Amino acid sequence: MRSRLVLATALAPALVLGLAACGADDAPSDGGAAPSDAPTAAAGTEACDAADLPTLTEGTLTVGASEPFEPWYVGEPASGEGFESALVYEVADRLGYAAEDVEWTSVTFEQIVSPAIKPFDVAAYQTTITDERAEAVDFSSPYLTSRQGVIVADDGEFADAASLADLSGAKVGVTASQTSLEAAEQAWGDDVEVVPFNGAGDGMTALTSGTVDAMVMDVDQGVAASTVYFPDTTVIGTLPDVGEPEQLGLVLDKDSELTACVSAAVDELEADGTLDELRTTWLDSDDIEQLS
Score class of each variant (00 low, 15 high):
Ser180Pro: 09
Asp232Leu: 01
Thr57Trp: 00
Ile112Thr: 12
Thr60Met: 14
Ser146Thr: 15
Asp30Gly: 11
Ser226Thr: 15
Leu7Gly: 13
Glu58Val: 08
Thr179Lys: 15
Val137Ile: 15
Ala50Thr: 05
Glu90Met: 02
Glu135Thr: 06
Val6Leu: 15
Thr179Asn: 12
Ala24Gly: 14
Pro115Ala: 12
Gly237His: 05
Ala99Val: 12
Ala50Phe: 07
Gly82Leu: 13
Lys254Pro: 00
Cys22Ser: 15
Ile151Asn: 07
Pro245Ala: 13
Ala265Met: 08
Trp72His: 13
Ala260Cys: 05
Gln221Met: 13
Asp101Val: 00
Gln111Lys: 06
Trp188Lys: 09
Asp131Ser: 12
Ala187Trp: 10
Thr108Asn: 08
Ala50Tyr: 09
Pro115Thr: 07
Asp52Gly: 05
Phe230Pro: 00
Lys254Ser: 11
Asp218Gln: 08
Ser285His: 12
Gly149Ile: 04
Asp26Ser: 14
Ala116Gly: 03
Glu277Thr: 15
Gly59Asn: 06
Ala161Asp: 03
Ala38Lys: 03
Gly169Glu: 07
Asp213Arg: 08
Leu61Cys: 07
Gly96Phe: 03
Glu157Pro: 01
Ala86Arg: 03
Pro240Phe: 05
Ala159Tyr: 03
Val219Glu: 14
Gln221Glu: 14
Glu81Lys: 15
Glu110Met: 09
Leu17Thr: 09
Asp25Lys: 11
Leu248Val: 07
Pro39Asn: 04
Ala162Met: 01
Thr60Phe: 08
Glu157Trp: 02
Val228Ile: 15
Gln186Glu: 14
Met215His: 02
Gly44Leu: 06
Glu157Lys: 08
